[in-house]
Write a protein that binds this DNA or RNA. Structure first.
Lengths: 348, 348
DNA sequence: CACCTTTATGAAATCGGTTGTATTTTAAAA
DNA sequence: TTTTAAAATACAACCGATTTCATAAAGGTG
């Protein structure tokens, strides 16, 4: 390959110093407007490309933001990342993305890689098996802003963006109770993850507030995948007495349960009311449409990135360090799958 | 912040030269095993972190791979990226991802940003409005391997990973014809994109091979979003005579059409057979299940990344430069939505 | 016209690894 | 013990932009 053009080449060509070239190209006020123009044009013409390594080396900044997600090919996560990318892109930051595939080891390895590649900030959604966040200590210590979202840890250093999962769980359960459901099954993933723990909490609170007993056997654990639907329905069928509602913590999984449920002879919502979570497209496609919680992933991504960048640019010193949780609004979207009383409010 | 530990600090501490430290940490064969161990331990203990900028500056390599996609929050694209990330991660490369949001301007801007950040290689799926790929000339000229996938351009420099969209379009159409369909509507996005142009070609070829006329009014253009389903159905209803099959180039869109079609009084597949594309979860959720083409996104991502990395590591000199298209196997998955003859072969 | 600002430019050190070449040490051969 | 090859280590020049501090030129004031 041909040798790269540097500011030294430009400087020599134009009879000025590299300093001036550097300043001119960075639009430094101390350089004469005419000189700037001349240098800029020359750089253009010579096909100059700034060498970020050198600049980074000197400035100790990368303009890169590291992102760690459990998996990229999830409806929710890809929305979040889309939102992040949009904001980052507009602000001139790059996204360096890696996935933990829900493995702590991979998460740690990725965190280290990103640390070593000197990202300016971090956005993290924890793997479902991650219990400690000490592998982020290096970031904390070095003052690299590290924000968490969705799946956050219960740790003072862990500033995070979440929805109020307890409230959401409460709302869903309350809605089902209002629809006359007496035995509500709640399907969740790992209880160690805040989102599921909180939803379960909301579920319990709602039962309590309506003087209904909490029955442990009605909580089913599942990885909430499309494939696990069959097994969930199997477990449901074995319950005695049978439940009259299913609150499944993921739309795609809830939608996938619909067919096996029908095949087993259940009418939805008459025999069993069904509620999902996330407001994914799948909840809108199936019949009946599935009641769900709107989980604003794209907005969460935008907001998290906005805050991170503001922080990096010094526009909000202290805001994040003093905050621990930023909660986004979520809402119950009532659809056919849980509407057992036709006069019920806001049937969307 | 405290000052960083450098190889010079380590060197001074241990009474060796920075050269030896550098070599030791890079496991260079010319350093004595014992020395290596000592240096490595010392580095560990002192909390040394290698400065990639300095290394990059010297080595002229980043270990970063740039990715440009139309949008991240799409089922197909997020699968592709998940596959890419997995392979890249294992090989020690980072992914720098940006989305064009289907705007040429943004695509050009992103390409420039990635070029300036000196990625070692590029993986690109073009925006639907991109006609020229001259904004990748800088990469070509500089010898930065740049691969395209899915949405590729018809250009000699454009090595790409694709499925045989013509064949897929042909297979679908042929299948519909075999099911007795006479008027098949084909819904696609921008004809300038290879994937849609090719599918349409396959559609035409199949008609031709079965002595059926090509009727231009049966080709409907749409952005294939969930929201556009209503409008597609509206257009279909206006056709006279009515069609008896819909071949929609995207599962989510096809699935979204199902309800409006039913509401309009069409029985699926008796009145209208329905076929989608991509084998997304949505095609499996709805009733009837939708016949589709399996489009292996994850595998495409893996394969594209593998090839790129092999190329970067010099393991396959020339393979890519001599290749123009690498075609992945795709297959027709026949489901209820198009099965009008019960004795039809391979009902999956 | 001497003196003080303001504006513009430059010299040189710096960021921290990497690597070609030279030098020293060690081991093996004579 | 001397010679010679091999192994281990060191020197010093890079990579290319940034930035502090110094200096020169231009402009303004009494």
């Amino acid at each position: 390959m041909e040798k790269e053009i540097t500011i030294y080449d430009i400087a020599k060509d134009m009879g000025v110093s590299p300093t001036t070239v550097s300043r001119a190209l960075n639009n430094h006020p101390a350089v004469n407007a005419k000189t700037k123009k001349r240098i800029y044009d020359a750089a253009q013409e010579m096909g100059y490309q700034s060498n970020i390594f050198a600049a980074n080396l000197r400035k100790k900044k990368t303009n890169n933001i590291g992102v760690i997600v459990p998996r990229l090919n999830s409806n929710f996560q890809s929305s979040v990342i889309a939102g992040m990318e949009k904001v980052a892109n507009e602000a001139g930051f790059n996204l360096v993305i890696s996935q933990s595939l829900d493995s702590v080891e991979k998460e740690i390895a990725n965190a280290n890689t990103l640390f070593n590649s000197r990202v300016d900030g971090m956005l993290v959604s924890l793997a479902n098996t991650t219990e400690s966040i000490e592998h982020y200590n290096r970031f904390f210590k070095k003052g690299i802003p590290t924000l968490f979202y969705d799946r956050v840890a219960d740790h003072p250093a862990c500033t995070g963006f979440v929805i109020d999962n307890t409230q959401a769980g409460y709302k869903v359960t309350q809605h089902l109770i209002e629809q006359g459901c007496k035995r509500i099954v709640h399907v969740i993933d790992n209880i160690d993850i805040n989102v599921y723990a909180d939803r379960l909490k909301g579920y319990k609170y709602a039962l309590l507030d309506h003087d209904m007993p909490f029955d442990e056997s009605l909580v089913i654990f599942s990885n909430l995948s499309e494939e696990s639907a069959e097994e969930i329905v199997e477990q449901v069928k074995k319950l005695d007495p049978l439940p009259d509602a299913l609150f499944i913590s993921n739309d795609a999984c809830a939608a996938s349960c619909l067919r096996p449920l029908k095949l087993a002879g259940f009418r939805i919502p008459e025999d069993i009311a069904l509620v999902g979570f996330n407001n994914e497209i799948s909840s809108r496609l199936v019949e009946p449409n599935i009641t769900t919680i709107n989980y604003p992933g794209y907005e969460m991504g935008e907001l998290a990135m906005k805050n991170l960048i503001n922080h990096l640019e010094g526009k909000s010193i202290g805001v994040l360090s003093k905050t621990n949780k930023i909660t986004l609004r979520s809402e119950l979207i009532i659809r056919e799958s849980s509407l057992r009383k036709k006069y019920s409010p806001q049937p969307t």
